[in-house]
Design a protein around this nucleic acid. Structure first.
Lengths: 167, 167
DNA sequence: ACAAACTTTCATTTTTTTTTGAAAGTTTAA
DNA sequence: TTAAACTTTCAAAAAAAAATGAAAGTTTGT
């Protein structure tokens, strides 16, 4: 396999993986492309390489920047904007975790708290509902916190995590 | 808030969360419904409660059973099939992790290994590509393993995890 | 073997999501 | 201030994903 083929395969795979995780294909592909590029790329080049429209490129680049995992760069003397991806993988994981937690987990937790707080009459159905949603709340809260801790201490996270939780 | 309203809110929220994680809305909703139900539910009742067609119900129930998080049950004397969800949350997490790892992470790892193995000529571009995809391979492999370990020891996973990894 | 009581399948339709591209907007340099 | 060189926006189109429902398939009891 040669370079171009490998790069293409990587971009395609990363794109497919993205869609399975609720991220749109183009967004994941642009990110993939930027990750393996050793120098900043212009919108023009992204469009060219991925065969996508200007609008598509613009919107997905904005989304990636909102996630904090792609940056704009300006080259001296050039009018055009260039883009780079966060390449430190720990940093990338931290940012993605934080963002997904904020956007998805936190709101879900709020709802779980609400619905588990209903006044149950005594029926088995209602008792089970309250019980199950309460457990779910605790579980999701704990999982979210663990993720937070893991990503908080990127380096050596395991050891520090243990200290923090065990004490 | 009363029971019916709370249940509905939970089912809707779980469904929305599902779509953000690459699981289709109905599948997540059926799962939600079964999770908070204290007794097995028939396909008929699922269709009724979620206002979906027979085909849709059937296909999504099959998918949930393929994931191993919903079970068929037979009630004595009844011809109809009933369904229950895995309600133990640790067990649920284990099954979802395993399945996603098998279906998505493992194939991605295979590709990462492949593309990071190209013979780099000396150019910066190719060197960077090999370097970055190798790092990515290591990172994803490690993350996948940690998840595996966490879910392997549902109870007390943290302590055992430390022992296993630290030694 | 038959038929009633169910479930599954899959071509078609519907809905949702993504992409396009042209117009509007912005920035810079002269 | 103007115009060239860009980027963003967003209504419309296209593509992808999900849902429908009727026909085909299966199972069970008699």
């Amino acid at each position: 396999m040669e370079f171009k083929e490998a790069k293409n395969k990587f971009v395609q795979t990363w794109g497919a993986l993205g869609s399975q995780w609720g991220i749109n294909k183009t967004m994941a592909q642009i990110h993939a492309l930027l990750m393996v590029s050793h120098e900043p790329i212009s919108m023009e080049d992204i469009m060219e390489e991925l065969q996508i429209s200007r609008g598509n490129a613009s919107m997905n680049l904005r989304a990636l920047m909102d996630w904090g995992i792609v940056y704009k760069e300006y080259k001296a003397g050039e009018r055009k904007e260039f883009f780079t991806a966060e390449k430190d993988l720990d940093e990338l994981a931290v940012k993605i975790s934080r963002e997904r937690s904020k956007r998805e987990i936190k709101p879900a937790l709020k709802v779980l708290k609400e619905v588990s707080a209903i006044e149950s009459d005594g029926t088995a159905a209602e008792k089970h509902f309250v019980d199950q949603t309460s457990k779910l709340y605790d579980f999701v809260l704990k999982a979210d916190n663990v993720l937070d801790k893991i990503t908080e201490y990127k380096d050596n996270w395991l050891a520090k995590l243990v200290v923090k939780i065990m004490k």
